[in-house]
Design a protein around this nucleic acid. Structure first.
Lengths: 192, 192
DNA sequence: CAAAGTTTTCAGAAAAAACTGAAAATACAG
DNA sequence: CTGTATTTTCAGTTTTTTCTGAAAACTTTG
């Protein structure tokens, strides 16, 4: 138990938020501890820092690994498993987005796609199907936007974020600009 | 229990996904049922459709209302409370995003902002603080992008989604285009 | 204001999730 | 191969969450 106040507050916060984020307290705390420590930690470090059982740590690490949020490391001459989190916060975000999409979005998208193809038996089913279609459309659009954007290098992603809502203004004027530019180009050629 | 197969599958799916989404089965089922039905439903309708207790329905509705996902309706000459979901799926998305940000993101952003201001006691704390700063920066950027984008009318939001990753290409060429357009404009004026 | 209809509250039951300690399995060193 | 260090598994316990039925509290109607 050598956690400094800053790290302790961070760890406890992650523990408390865990339930809202769909992970349990231990998993939240383990992740926070790993994230904030300079050196990789082994399971027993976590046991003593977080005061939870060894097997609880093991389960938590397994879950974090399944999310791609804990990475195995080894130290020469030490048989124990050490863990860290991925360094780059933007890659962590990508990992998280990918996993959550896979677990929380894709199954629903698949279900919606399926039910929408069925033949409705009456007006109520027809209405229900229309609604499901709307939901499917929304999720599919978000999904495809995500697929499009996830490949961007971080630099460009930052650019996109920084641009915020201004992109749409740009989009709206884009047509005008291109058409204007084309016209200008034609004029240019005429001149020559 | 007059649910058609389509609605039933939809309702059961929402019930099952509930735990992944941070709501419980009943809440998921109630929402799905409301979402798919043409007419508003009263609590007893839900009790008989979903076969869960009256008080469970009441609790579920209370929670859905706290999310802004269930709306109270009344029928003339009927004292019971009826419920629907908001019509427009895009407004549902906005509501959901707003609530989740408030519950799942803002508290952490606040904590990070606070711990980052403290004076570190040693190199470990310094490192931890650096990491927390990186996390804060990431979340702050996403937050501010969200604040920027949430005000867009749906039409423009769709435009933005449709554009996907292409916006960054556009951004990168935007400078060139504007300068070219300006030049063309000058040439245009010369001609006159 | 009494009776009926309806929603809300709440104590406790049931179910699910999280956690533990101990034992089993695995990996390695000598 | 034996003994030790380490991780994994698992049956059972604790805690938390969800759900229920009954009672209380409203609300409306006659």
């Amino acid at each position: 138990m050598t956690m400094s106040p800053i790290v302790q507050d961070f760890v406890l916060h992650f523990g408390e938020m865990g339930s809202r984020w769909g992970i349990n307290r231990s998993v939240g705390q383990i992740y926070a501890l790993l994230y904030a420590s300079r050196e990789p930690l082994c399971a027993d470090d976590m046991v003593s820092e977080l005061q939870i059982s060894r097997s609880n740590v093991a389960a938590g690490l397994k879950e974090l690994q399944s999310w791609g949020l804990a990475l195995l490391r080894h130290r020469p001459g030490d048989r124990r498993d050490y863990y860290t989190t991925p360094e780059d916060v933007w890659s962590i975000l990508r990992t998280l987005a990918e996993e959550r999409k896979k677990r929380e979005v894709d199954p629903t998208l698949a279900l919606l796609a399926e039910v929408v193809t069925r033949t409705p038996r009456d007006e109520n089913e027809e209405y229900a199907q229309k609604r499901m279609g709307e939901m499917h459309d929304l999720i599919a659009r978000l999904s495809s936007w995500y697929d499009d954007v996830k490949g961007l290098e971080t630099e460009r992603l930052l650019m996109l974020l920084g641009m915020g809502a201004r992109v749409t203004r740009l989009l709206e004027t884009a047509d005008k600009m291109t058409s204007f530019a084309r016209k200008a180009e034609r004029d240019q050629n005429e001149k020559v």
